[in-house]
Amino acid sequence: MDPSLIGAIASIGGLGLLLGGGLAYASRVFYVKVDPRIEEVDEALPGANCGACGQAGCRQMAVQVVGGELTGADCPVASSDVVARVAEIMGGVAGAAVDMVAIVRCQGSPDKCPDRFEYSGFQTCTGGDKIGHGHKACDWGCLGFGECVAACPFDAMVMGADRLPKVMDENCTGCGKCVEACPRDIMHLIPRNAPVYLACMNINKTKKVQEVCDIGCIGCGRCANKKATPSGMVSMNKETNLPVFDYSYDDEPVVAVDVCPTDSLVDKKAGRRPIWHIDPTMCNGTGECAKICPVKKCITETDGGKYVIDPEKCISCGWCEPVCPTKAISPIQVNAIRKVG
């Protein structure tokens, strides 16, 4: 046999055996215990090592995720499936304990908040914001060039025909890219289950707000009034003249939305709340419900001494239910009403 053939097989084979055996042995001797979740998260991530998350590679990101510093949503490349898989490995909570969702804190479409001049510079929010406090009449209003929409990695935002961005909650992961992108701090993150939020940033009061926008918060404080929110969930910030919602309260401030004179509060569950109904066979006619009902002429006394709720006027606040001594009041789903009506 050709000696060079034997030499070749011996050299490469020997080298391979030596290195292979050495590595196998070394992997035992130099074994380092690591959190098995790091391996799992690493496998779930895209594995492109692109560095877009700010880490050196996917493995470094996995270490940070397991350490609680990052979440799957910090990977701009990851699809929502990957984010969900990472969250599953981490036991349902991928870093942040509260599931957040983005909101738009402005409702000033051109018909409600007009432009004060025609802007023809760079068609970006950052550019528009720099020229004369922006072209919107309101210094806090959304400029509508959609930098937030462009920044959204999950296709959870669209630009509406009213020049205001819309967030689709089911796609929003609460990653906060839109919050970073907005030069006016209009985008904001709130808990996903938060019932109501304020969609205005204007810190001025009454007249100064009304001059520029029909739907801006005028700082009247009616929503924070004890009559509207007895739980104390809403309070007025004296410096910004805006109501502040404390989402740690388990309250649905529907009445606050109802009393707002400018509609600047947005009810996230609007249309999905049940309206209430009094069972006439159980009503004993004490009228406690009519006393507590915040809406005028919503609960009225019938000729037979019973009380009825007008489904057209009911704002779904549910205040009447606990005060009824005979438990005659129960919710009926909105869609059920629609079928009847």
């Binding site: 050299s11 080298l15 391979g16 290195l19 050495g22 590595l23 070394a26 001797v29 130099f30 074994y31």
Partner: peptide
Amino acid sequence: SFILVIAGLVQFVEMVIQK
């Protein structure tokens, strides 16, 4: 053989410094 040696060595060195 160079590729074999370099790849094997780097893997080995990685294990050593990780430990």
